[in-house]
């Protein structure tokens, strides 16, 4: 599917990262989702990659000739959705 993405298409909406920028990150040595994230911020925004991660995987897989499940996911970290600092302090973290 990644072959249909044009270079100027925005993949990560939260951080406004394009296909071309993701390809550049891969050229600089990114081999997985976290590597792309660290280089161009795809997946670092409000939704934490919930929307773009699958597309990022497909682009990396296409560029490196790998399978999408071979290029990893971002690390699982709390919170599972945005939560106010005040609520965390009160212990409402489930």
């Amino acid at each position: 599917m990644a072959e249909y993405f044009s270079d100027d298409m925005i993949v990560c909406r939260c951080e406004e990262v394009t296909v071309a920028e993701i390809k550049e990150a891969i050229r600089q040595g990114a081999k997985d989702v976290v590597g792309v994230k660290r280089r161009v911020r795809a997946g670092m925004g409000l939704c934490q990659g919930r929307t773009c991660e699958k597309m990022v995987q497909q682009i990396i897989a296409q560029e490196l000739g790998a399978k999408p499940w071979e290029v990893g996911t971002s690390s699982a970290r709390p919170p599972i959705r945005p939560i106010a600092f005040g609520d965390i302090a009160k212990g409402i973290v489930e």
């Binding site: 670092m44 925004g45 409000l46 934490q48 970290r77 709390p78 919170p79 945005p82 939560i83 106010a84 600092f85 005040g86 965390i88 302090a89």
Partner: peptide, 9 residues
Amino acid sequence: LADINCIRT
């Protein structure tokens, strides 16, 4: 900070 969201740790 009480009303600002935490998105990641």
